[in-house]
Each structure stands twice: as structure tokens, then as C-alpha cells.
Amino acid sequence: MNVFRLAGDMSHLLAIIILLLKIWKTRSCAGISGRSQLLFALTYTARYLDLVTNWVSLYNTVMKVFFIATSYATIYLMYLKFKATYDSNHDTFRVEFLLLPVTILALVLNHEFSFMEILWTFSIYLEAVAILPQLFMVSKTGEAESITSHYLFALGSYRLLYIFNWIWRYYTEEYYDLIAIIAGVVQTVLYCDFFYLYFTKVLKGKKLQLPA
């Protein structure tokens, strides 16, 4: 554990809390992609099955349980409790275009051809692209509420901070995991356009609005 890793985890935690609070306080999930949230739930389920086979630390276990539980709580709020507010006609990204290549890639490019390892690899690849339905939705509607922008910023920062953590670990522990690093870089790059808009618009008090 180093400061970048901890900051990354906290940023991830913050993103989820912002999202849940937004939905709960406004009683609405408008502007949020249910498809991205389903992909995140699938990501954490596939990755954290090792909760029952591999003990790392109390911190690790608590965080994993939190990520799995909140991902399903978000889905419950979006698809059941506040279903009427879900903007499904703007949430039209075809997730099979992500799931199919990610599944094939996980079967081909992995550290070990075993059930748990392929699930882990699948989750790493899937997480990298899981935000695309959400970014697609923002580009389709041409705008995002500020609170949604803060959520996306925290979520994007998390993998960027992990990249610093991997650089740190490479120099201090000679440890690196190419699959995680490459997927993490792809994940972060997908946010670049959004980061730019966040700094130039949202932080100056303007709404995130794409040029027509």
C-alpha cells in the first residue's frame, strides 16, 4: 500500500458515494447510464469472487464487499426503486460490442488459463471500457449535471492514481502486472476528453455542455 494506491481507492469510494447520494437525495437517476452500472456490477462480481478463496487483508475484504454491495444497490435504485426517472431512451450503447471482445481477449490474453484467473482478467478488461455507455449517454444528450460530472471525475481519477501506484511499485518492489497496467491506461485515456471539459467548464461553475 502506498499513497497513490490509497488515494485511488478513496477516489473510487468517493465516486460511488457521490453517485448513490445523487440518486438518493434527488430521488432520480436521470443522466446515469444503467448499462454502465450493470457492467460495473459484472466487473466487481467477476473480480471479487476471490473473496472466498484468497485472503489479502481486512481492508481488502471490506472494500471488495463495499464495491459489490454498492454496485447492486445502484442497480436496485435505477431499475426498481427510481425506475420512472431512468433515462433509458438515451441509454442505448450496445454492450454486446464490449462484452464479446472483452470475453475473447480474456480467454486469449491472461496470466494463467484457469477459471478464477480468466474471470479476473475479464473483469480488468471490462472495467476499462465499462464507462463507455455513460460517456456515450453524455455525448448523446450533450450535457451532464454537475453532480454527475463530479462522479465521473472521481471515477476517472481512480485509475489514473493507480497508474502512479504501479509506477511506484515497479521502482520499489520490482512488481508489475502488464494486464492491469495496459487496461488501466486504456481506462484512463477514455476519460481524457471528459477531464478536459471538467477542468475547463465544470470547475468554472458552468454546466458540462458539449458544443452542438
Binding site: 481507492d9 489479502v56 472494500m63 494463467e112 479476473w120 518492489e173 512488481y175 494486464i179 492491469a180
Partner: peptide
Amino acid sequence: RQNELDHDEL
């Protein structure tokens, strides 16, 4: 050197 199969990260 740590094994990359350990997955100690989140």
C-alpha cells in the same frame, strides 16, 4: 518479487 497472480489490488 511478487507473483502477478496474487491480485492484492482492488
